[in-house]
Design a protein around this nucleic acid. Sequence first.
DNA 1: TAAATCAATCGAAAATTTCGATTATAAAAT
DNA 2: ATTTTATAATCGAAATTTTCGATTGATTTA
Lengths: 296, 296
Amino acid sequence: MELRQLKYFVRAAELLNFTQAAEDLFITQSTLSHQIKELENSLDTLLFDRIAKRVRLTEAGEVMLQYARKTIHQAEESRQVLLDLNNMKSGKIIIGSTYGLQELLMESIVEYNEKYPDIEIQIIYGSTTDLLQKILDYKIDCMLSFMSELGHNELMINKLFSAHLSLIVHQSHSWAKLKKVALEKVTALPLALPSQSYSIRNLLDKLLDDKGIPLHTKMEINDIHSLLQLANTNKWSTILMHTSLFDFKELKAIPLEGKNTVREATIAISKGIYHKKSLVLFQEILLKKSEVYRNE
Amino acid sequence: MELRQLKYFVRAAELLNFTQAAEDLFITQSTLSHQIKELENSLDTLLFDRIAKRVRLTEAGEVMLQYARKTIHQAEESRQVLLDLNNMKSGKIIIGSTYGLQELLMESIVEYNEKYPDIEIQIIYGSTTDLLQKILDYKIDCMLSFMSELGHNELMINKLFSAHLSLIVHQSHSWAKLKKVALEKVTALPLALPSQSYSIRNLLDKLLDDKGIPLHTKMEINDIHSLLQLANTNKWSTILMHTSLFDFKELKAIPLEGKNTVREATIAISKGIYHKKSLVLFQEILLKKSEVYRNE
DNA sequence: TAAATCAATCGAAAATTTCGATTATAAAAT
DNA sequence: ATTTTATAATCGAAATTTTCGATTGATTTA
């Protein structure tokens, strides 16, 4: 068993396609096949079922996948600790985030990169569920999302700010001066909404469902900026967290009434892993940048 | 970085002598030198200081040693999980124990080996302190010793039985019928005592010190059986846990009076690691065998 | 001063990893 | 029903890595 073989195995197990995995790893399929077999021999256990030139994981393979990831992560962690020890302020940080926190994230990484130009940054957007899985698989170092601080024992969750689910309208809209608005009312407006993959949309759907309010979506978009641009035309309105309209000066956010219309923006980091300096430094900047939102 | 290199490094770091380490690893010194250098290159960090053909760990090396052990352990853990998954009842178990629990341990491993003949057993005797270090370094799977159940957050500690610190005399000794004896009295007898490396001796020294009783040791031996054999001649007495004289039918254990003369025999297992079946099975047998002692 | 110890180095041998081409099998497309 | 496509295994050769044995040079010990 060697780390190289574990890395090969993980990729093969993830793609369940040796040819693609080999390409991904910059080796030939032949080599991958060979090394997987070698790993299986050393473990005395088949990791893949070979059903007629297709592969799928055996039960042992499923288990091994997790342990292989853990072992590889452990090895990489030691490399990172040495970097930190040398106070290198280098290496790589992989940040997972939901779209809803894109604005804050962008501001933060700009400052982060200015301060620590040698740290490589990778950002992966995804739903909260996606990100939770990725954090368990050691694919991301931390995740920014709107989530409860409870119910995740293996995560260290820090609150960034609270955000109101809000109706977003143009300043010349007749409702623009309202201090709050009832959920029942907004469905009457022409609404452009984020698509189902956004947690904010799930929240909205749930709130409407609880009150039995029907919703006829006329416009559904997979991009926050597009929604804001539409709202900026004053022909549509949208529903987002109030913190999302940052640089659209002509838009107004009107908080929705009712319980459960407030969500906590958080950063979550796995408790079990070593908290590398690059990660701690990022969190510091993120918390500082969040202050602006906290006082709104 | 490969597991092979990490294994080489750990041994080299432990022995701080490349020649010996190489011998230990069944490779040549040349190979070891080369592979260590390769590892250092891949980490971009020197792990050893080379002061004129001698080696010692750099700060980074010290840190790396821990992480290397952890990584290797993680890899081995995955192998063990697969064995367990196949219900193999095989593999290897390394048991650390203090001498004071040798008797119980022997009885247990006899039954253990009868039931699971395919599991390889290795036993390492050492002081409680030694064993604690070894358990942290992943060198033993569990440890049997007399220790407090508290103050070790990272360990899962199970109580086996309580043992009294006792004066051990021959049945024909004039004190043989006593139900208990005061600490002050025993120093008058010709005593053969376990050496300082035994926790029981530390306990005794501490109790005497607390009461300001001076002790003039006439005989100090590094082996429990030898002490018992001496006591069996009726020319000497000794002080041990009452459970230690098991198959010496002509010896009597007389409990010492006072507080803190009772110690808990325990089995401790690291919380962080995977509890492999071989280990769980061993613990079961051990607990069963302990019953005899519990009712004394 | 001589002998012993020890890590680095070097070139060659051995082992392993990787590659490219081919084969075999099943699924998909025609 | 037949052909095409996709895929993993296999095989021999090439490339690379690992290991070895011998030597060197520097230091400590006798």
